[in-house]
């Protein structure tokens, strides 16, 4: 019987190509990538061990009325960051001497919020009768600490993202009880758009 002279070489090439083929497929076949690893992880993460080392920041967070995918979450307080809160200290029916009123009044506030043809006014948000509170379009009284409910009336998409975690940011810790920043922690409610400014630093070329 006559043997084909290339038979041996052919089988060798075949074996080699198999090796190369399977060698290359190793990564994706074993793990399927991070997307698969992630999808397979459905068990709730137990962060007890980490939580023990985490102090609560800030010290007196506000429990948010809405829940996120992981349950309750907290946000920063607002009323202690407002200068001269409570507003009813001045905004009451008592008389105030004019010179003192001029000193403490807030005539410097410029309102740049809302569409140009229909800008917001003070009492779009502030409750006219009880100045310590905010007022929704429906006329519900809202505490300053829960101002996200006010913003969420128009900015509902941003609020949905804020609840879920795609807008805004957590305070200091990625683990433990979720405490996020309030809307007004970053945005000035009277002119919410971020201002133009100089960057904090600069970069050199990576290779020159």
């Amino acid at each position: 019987m006559k043997r084909c002279p290339f038979q041996r070489k052919l089988s060798l090439i075949l074996i080699l190509s198999f090796l190369i083929f399977f060698g290359c497929k190793e990564y994706s076949e074993h793990t399927g990538g991070v997307t698969v690893t992630m999808k397979e992880a459905t068990a709730p993460f137990d962060d007890k061990e980490i939580v023990e080392s985490i102090p609560r920041i800030p010290k007196n967070p506000v429990l948010v009325n809405t829940r996120y995918q992981g349950g309750f979450f907290w946000t920063e307080t607002r009323h202690d960051k407002i200068e001269r809160f409570r507003c009813s200290n001045c905004h009451n029916n008592n008389e105030a001497p004019i010179d003192k009123a001029a000193k403490v009044a807030h005539g410097n506030i410029v309102l740049v919020h809302g569409p140009e043809n229909k800008p917001l006014k003070c009492f779009t948000c502030h409750n006219q009768d009880e100045r310590d509170f905010l007022n929704t379009e429906r006329g519900t009284k809202i505490e300053m600490d829960h101002s996200y409910q006010m913003c969420g009336q128009c900015h509902f998409r941003q609020k949905r993202d804020w609840v879920g975690g795609a807008h805004g940011k957590r305070i200091s810790y990625w683990a433990g009880k979720r405490t996020v920043m309030n809307c007004a922690s970053c945005h000035d409610p009277h002119s919410p758009k971020f201002a133009k400014k100089w960057p904090k630093t600069y970069s050199l070329a990576l290779s020159d």
Binding site: T37, M38, A41, T42, F45, Y68, Q69, G70, A166, W174
Partner: peptide, 14 residues
């Protein structure tokens, strides 16, 4: 946004 990819309730997963 930073977080744990193995935690189904994390921000990054959202």
């Amino acid at each position: 946004v930073f977080g744990n990819l193995l935690d189904p309730k994390s921000e990054i997963r959202y």
